[in-house]
Nucleic acid binder design. Structure first.
Lengths: 133, 133
DNA sequence: ATAATCTATACCAAATTAATATATTTGGTA
DNA sequence: TACCAAATATATTAATTTGGTATAGATTAT
């Protein structure tokens, strides 16, 4: 939904992997991004599931990017961690408007919020990690 | 910072006052906006302090708009309740980036977020309540 | 085999957001 | 001018979300 600290962490991690361009173990990533090890591991698993990062088990294991930084967008990383971005919770299909007696299913405010949310998503889709290193 | 349910409530309240165009007491506002009375009172106090709403004490008291709906922007109402809007908490001067060892005071990600946040604020400044009734 | 590394699920704590309670002040009206 | 209906102020509590941790297990290079 919103962009929280976890997104910030996920971005730092992908940015770090974009910078070093090689495999790094979780401990290394944690130290270099200032994200606690366990929380970094949790985020890394999400990034792996989303196909942004590749993981390798066992000795000499670790994580590396699964694609070129130029192919990874800010939107992708944020939505991996937060789900779809919405400016207001009333737009989230999971939450919706908490009002019972509303005349129409979508009010004008909601429509404005939806328009702005779309813009934000599009902007973030246009920002790739090669531009951020 | 972010747009929460409280913003949603504040918007509903201002919208309701824009629609009826007359004085209404808190209980009436609460019932018509589906915001609990006490929470509505709390929000109303903020709206009064911000000069968006005028309050009248005593019998026949209540609340009414302090200016025309066309003069009240979505940005104004939201920022009354949430403070300045930022896409990411790292932009909030009160919070900031929680990273210690950062090379530069503002990273590129932060700059992109700042640019998008500015856009969102400008959009919301352009939306007045006469368009929303 | 074993030590290093990731995986999975569940759990807990801190912070934020939402809502309520109580006591007080103000002002119109009988 | 006493009274009652309303707003004001501050503190407190409850619910939700976010951030972070613990434990047990699976995998792989050496």
């Amino acid at each position: 939904m919103h962009i929280t600290l976890e997104s910030d962490y996920a971005i730092r991690i992908v940015l770090y992997l974009s910078q070093i361009q090689k495999r790094a173990e979780a401990k290394n990533i944690s130290e270099n991004t200032e994200v606690t090890l366990r929380f970094a591991l949790k985020i890394l698993r999400k990034l792996v599931a989303a196909g942004i990062v590749k993981s390798f088990k066992g000795t000499q294991g670790g994580y590396e990017l699964n694609k070129a930084p130029a192919e990874i967008t800010l939107a992708e990383v944020i939505e991996t961690v937060e789900g779809t971005y919405y400016l207001s919770r009333c737009l989230d299909p999971q939450l919706g408007c908490n009002r019972e007696n509303r005349s129409s299913p979508y009010c004008k405010v909601q429509r404005e919020f939806a328009r702005i949310s779309d813009y934000v998503r599009k902007e973030m889709q246009g920002i790739t990690f090669d531009k951020l290193v």
